[in-house]
Nucleic acid binder design. Sequence first.
DNA 1: GGGAAAACTGGGAGCGCTTCCAGTTGGAAC
DNA 2: GTTCCAACTGGAAGCGCTCCCAGTTTTCCC
Lengths: 334, 334
Amino acid sequence: MGPKRQPTLDEVAARAGVSRSAASRVINNARHVSQAKREAVERAVAELGFVPNPAARALANQQVGAVVLALSHHDPALFTDPFFAQIILGVNAELEKTELELLLVLADTAQGQTRLQRILRSRRADGVMLMALHGDDPLAALADQHDIPVVFGGRPLHAEPRWYVDADNRGGSRLATEHVIGLGRRHVAVITGQMDTEAATARHRGYLDAMAVAGLDPARVEHSDFTEPGGAAAMTRLLAVHPEVDAVVAGSDAIAAGALRALKAHGRTVPGDVAVVGFDDLQTALHTDPQLTTVHQPVHGLGRELAKMLLSLIAGEQPHPLILPTRLVRRASA
Amino acid sequence: MGPKRQPTLDEVAARAGVSRSAASRVINNARHVSQAKREAVERAVAELGFVPNPAARALANQQVGAVVLALSHHDPALFTDPFFAQIILGVNAELEKTELELLLVLADTAQGQTRLQRILRSRRADGVMLMALHGDDPLAALADQHDIPVVFGGRPLHAEPRWYVDADNRGGSRLATEHVIGLGRRHVAVITGQMDTEAATARHRGYLDAMAVAGLDPARVEHSDFTEPGGAAAMTRLLAVHPEVDAVVAGSDAIAAGALRALKAHGRTVPGDVAVVGFDDLQTALHTDPQLTTVHQPVHGLGRELAKMLLSLIAGEQPHPLILPTRLVRRASA
DNA sequence: GGGAAAACTGGGAGCGCTTCCAGTTGGAAC
DNA sequence: GTTCCAACTGGAAGCGCTCCCAGTTTTCCC
């Protein structure tokens, strides 16, 4: 920590022997600067190690040079899910191409909500990405209340936002269900995530779709959260109520991992006695025993598209909502 | 997105019938404001929904109201480790008590490095938390190059930063090793993380400490990265070279999980044939089969302490480096 | 009731950068 | 040589907020 103040544009201009305006034009490589002055300024910039002050820039420009990624989840433990890590990586990958910084807001608590509100109101960012909304989430309404672009990752339960990126949850889940039915399983159960999320309900619908087409009874259902312990607990309940179950379509890989553990504890073999299909296709799916047959959703891509959509919105374009395809990945568990 | 411009301090002042200075004093609840004016201003603020513009504030104040958490890792996949999620949660928990925003920088690529440089130079943040440095990491040197507080999470390999928070890696690893020795194991191996990290080398040293005390041969060592596949590969190598191994001290839970998988694949039972001890005590440790005996390190707490240290540094205090205790958690694998 | 100390008050000068605008310049065309 | 136009140039006015400071009002003692 040496107290060296950063040089200002004025100092750069002085050193280069030009006016501040000219220097500014060079920095922003605008037109109307002669080659000579441009080079002089560039030299001065390099020599002084000048970096424009973002606060001053933001003030003059009315743009901040930062966007926020808000992760809304009621349970901090959920943030531990590699899903979010992949989203962040995806967003980051896209942002790295720009000069924009990433503000991370964990809007789980009431604290976080207020925080996000404040950010929106005060123009601390040029745009917002909002992830994983629960049904009662007040964040959803925030979008059109403020003069700032907001894109959604996934959809809120009871609203269709103007801009969002989502995965084809329903289609993917249908694929998964069809797969186990194709395997000859007839007592197919489903373990959902929180039903106050769009993802969980859509995946449940996919299951219903497939079961209806096959003419099978879709009544074997347990609700859970998106965690491993939740999945294990749900599986245990399922075995108690429907001991005949011979396949499980899980709402996520974590749930499937939990189900696997519970099945093993109850002496059932996988996929022998019970076939299990997950959803997400994260690293976890490779580390279970047996490895998980699962529905792949492009999580990293979702993050990237989220960022891209926001960028194009900030650039004044009018992007279309996006639904990314999902596909079945066959491994050992089904 | 309604184009409602946010009100400015001037408008608030006008509405409250006071000067801008007075209004500013109220906002920052400084002294020298009569009760009457204070209330008038507060009313105006509420009515107008005024929120101070951070850019203007930053410009006038010379403080930004944001800190950055920089995660340096050479492999994006590593970021997926729940370890980082916990760190982020811990940091966030502490930051929520303040008005500071969190800037997330993934400094894995050269891009990220430049980015961090730029942030430091341009005073885009009031402080920096730097995590997980590899030995050759140029980030380490950044600390004292700029007039901005920097605290380290973990230590760089060849440097002792002025301010850091770390876990007692050496002590924890020694505990783990002593534990398996106490179990009667004599052919104790170690699988390390990347040896260009301080954490991995310190944990290796802990193993050496315990082996020396017990008078055992500390030569069974394999190096790996901190991932599950890495752990599995290392375990396989270990079995090939030292088939007599009866205990493994792993450099992380992920490594241990991989080792477990490899052991099972090679027909060894755990803990029967081989005892396995992990390090971290993250969720993963509960989801392996058998559940992992492991060294607990307070990751969330590490994040919190990291943030607290930075805050106190920003507040002008001189905090001391901190080493958080680790402890052995006994479960089924050893 | 007088005087000094304490408590307010608002004007104004920045913080560092962008950008409008009224000039200048330098050629090319005539 | 003019004339004109496009390409430059730099002064100046902000962007919204903080804070110093000189001036004004209150409050408090004796």
